[in-house]
Amino acid sequence: MLFAHDTECGLIAAAGLVNTADGDQEGLPDVAALDEFFTAHGWTGRHEHTEAELRSVRELRPRLRRIWHADTDGVVTIVNGLLRESNALPQLIRHDDEPYHLHAVPRDAPLATRMAVEAAMAVADLVRAGELSRLRICDHPDCDNVLVDLSKNRSRRFCDAGCGNRAAVTAYRARKAAAHS
């Protein structure tokens, strides 16, 4: 299934944001880290560079994480809540040399609001396409990061934190040990 560019970007950014809350390791420790996240995920529009904005973005993460653990009805409840609370009104927009795509809140809305709505709109596309199974938890036993499987054959199992490499090394070592026994 081919998803619209803004859907894929919204899903990847949502997973990336969720994964910044990693138990002991804070992935958004300060405003500078939020600035880097903002740039890395191609966000545009209002960005205040404040502690208050950072707190708002951090507060969004647990709510988005629940999407990866909910059944379809639960996902719909979360998505509808995010859209309703943000007074989302989808409109086609073109900016920054990007083709037309959907924005559901103004570009000057608070960053956390825009992140919530972009994630909700992207997940809504997955629900409509019957593709929620593309939202997964990393298969590595020591990882609870989330991921979005956008591969054609739906085969992605590991997050972007190097878990696939760790699993391959573990399997290799197990094969070597078995061969020497």
Rank of each mutant, 00 (worst) to 15 (best):
C163F: 02
A112F: 00
S133F: 06
H95K: 09
L102T: 15
R61W: 02
Q25P: 09
C9L: 15
R175P: 00
E131T: 00
H95S: 15
G162M: 05
G16P: 12
V127N: 05
M1S: 08
M115T: 12
E98S: 12
R63T: 14
R46P: 00
I78K: 06
R55H: 13
A70S: 14
A122M: 05
E26A: 13
R61S: 07
G164L: 14
E8G: 10
D73P: 08
A52T: 15
G130C: 05
V127D: 08
L34T: 06
D96P: 01
R107Y: 08
T7C: 06
L89N: 08
T77G: 11
A14W: 12
L2R: 15
R84T: 07
H103Q: 11
R107E: 10
D144S: 08
E98K: 07
L64D: 11
A179D: 15
D144R: 13
A179Y: 05
D24W: 09
R166D: 08
A13I: 04
R46V: 03
E98P: 02
N165P: 09
D22G: 10
L135Y: 04
L126Q: 11
A167P: 06
A124F: 04
M121T: 12
R154M: 05
H47I: 01
E26C: 09
A122T: 03
A174L: 09
D139A: 15
G162Y: 04
R107P: 10
A109V: 04
E131G: 03
A171H: 10
H49N: 08
E53G: 02
P106V: 12
N80C: 04
S133E: 15
G45I: 00
V79L: 07
I137L: 14
L135N: 07
A171Q: 11
L2T: 14
E59G: 07
H49T: 13
H140D: 15
R107C: 08
P141N: 09
A179R: 15
S133M: 10
I93D: 10
A120Y: 01
V76W: 01
D142Q: 12
H103V: 03
E26F: 07
V127C: 01
D71W: 14
D73W: 09
S86V: 01
D139W: 13
D160F: 03
L34A: 03
F37E: 08
L28C: 09
A104P: 05
L102P: 01
R114P: 04
V105N: 06
Y100C: 06
D108A: 11
T20I: 04
L82T: 05
D149Q: 03
R173S: 08
S56H: 13
D35T: 11
M115P: 00
A52K: 10
V117K: 01
E98T: 02
M1K: 12
W68M: 00
W68D: 02
A40K: 13
D160H: 14
H101C: 07
H49M: 14
D96G: 12
V18P: 02
A168F: 07
F38T: 04
T77I: 08
A88Q: 03
K152S: 14
V117Q: 02
W68Q: 01
R55I: 11
A15W: 03
F38V: 05
P110A: 09
T7A: 12
F158C: 06
S151L: 05
D35C: 12
A112L: 02
T7H: 11
A88K: 05
R63Q: 06
